[in-house]
């Protein structure tokens, strides 16, 4: 049995004028760490709200922990832990009060499932009496995760838990998720950060309400259909502009230290060809090499393919 299953889910807003979720289907296996990766407005939050039974889909069916999101919503609510994208704990309650509140609501106690939250809670418990509104971003995030775990959920639904959080806190957060996975909890997590996709076992790439691909991060990268070249010079902007005017180049885009180039026709001497062209136009210290595509390169490739469809 899959821990989470969506079948042809549709969701529109504004009397059908805005399509938020467009025929989305995917399954998350029991115990899996699954990522929903896409930019703002892709439909991630609508999917989370449908799965947590706080929003009804227009069409399609979905289940969580084996229960139907419409008919058996009560059973689901006791079995999922949900961390919404917006910080939703009580700002005027302290760390301890928030935790006790959520424990009581689920008819349990902090002690009962202490093992599950111990590693995370230990990091914030020195500030037990501080109000949630006064915590740093990283601490709020840890408290929210503790509250989502307090009733020992089977499935954890985390909507953009790392957005706006700095790189160090983000890394710590992903380490915590790996620990929770070890304890058998299924995790569905969304993020706009493409680099976080590699930390999931499987990912669904989503844009404009449509799923572009569901795969392991390795396979998504492997599926990249063409050779990707990386290039740099003393003046990357000039080099980029020159390559865009080159007939043999299909696309060229900036990407950090090295820009990315895709050529129209694969050729064994493509590197020399590109280099000669660049030097002819006065670019200095030109370096060109073949580079492995990233999840982001794939996302761009897939979304452009979808757009040309």
């Amino acid at each position: 049995m899959d821990a989470v299953s969506l079948k042809n889910i549709h969701k529109t807003y504004d009397k059908g004028n805005v399509i938020a979720v467009d025929d989305v289907s995917f399954d998350v296996k029991k115990g899996e760490l699954f990522g929903l990766i896409g930019p703002d407005g892709a439909g991630k939050t609508s999917i989370f709200r449908i799965l947590t039974t706080v929003l009804l889909a227009d069409k399609g069916s979905a289940s969580v922990a084996g229960f139907d999101v419409v008919k058996e919503y009560r059973a689901i609510r006791n079995r999922v832990g949900y961390m919404p994208g917006k910080f939703s704990l009580y700002q005027d309650l302290t760390i301890k009060e928030n935790l006790e509140f959520f424990a009581t609501v689920f008819d349990t106690s902090i002690e009962e499932n202490y093992d599950l939250i111990k590693n995370i809670y230990d990091q914030i418990s020195p500030f037990n009496d501080r109000r949630a509104g006064k915590l740093s971003g990283g601490m709020k995030q840890k408290l929210a995760l503790c509250c989502a775990l307090i009733h020992k959920p089977e499935v954890l639904l985390l909507d953009e838990p790392t957005t706006g959080v700095d790189a160090v806190s983000r890394k710590e957060f992903w380490d915590m998720l790996k620990d929770l996975k070890q304890q058998g909890i299924t995790i569905l997590v969304s993020t706009p950060y493409m680099d976080e996709a590699n930390l999931c076992e499987r990912i669904a790439l989503i844009q404009n309400g449509k799923i572009l691909s569901v795969e392991t991060p390795e396979n998504i990268v492997k599926a990249f259909p063409v050779t990707l070249y990386a290039a740099k010079s003393d003046n990357n902007y000039k080099l980029l502009t020159d390559f865009r005017n080159f007939d043999a180049v299909a696309s060229a885009y900036a990407s950090g230290e090295y820009m990315r180039i895709i050529v129209k026709d694969e050729h064994p001497d493509s590197i020399t060809l590109l280099k000669d062209y660049a030097e002819k136009f006065g670019n200095r210290n030109v370096e060109i090499k073949i580079i492995a595509p990233t999840i982001e390169d794939n996302f761009i490739w897939l979304s452009q393919k979808e757009a040309n469809h």
Binding site: G38, P39, D40, A42, T163, G164, P192, M194, Q207, N236, Y237, K238, L240, Y253, A254, S255, E296, F299, I300, S303, Q304
Partner: peptide, 21 residues
């Protein structure tokens, strides 16, 4: 560029490079 899609993010960086140039 927080939250924008990767295609737009790259177009955005194009604009930054252009301004700098």
């Amino acid at each position: 560029t927080g939250g924008v899609d990767p295609v737009t993010r790259r177009q955005f960086w194009d604009m930054i490079y252009e301004a700098a140039a």
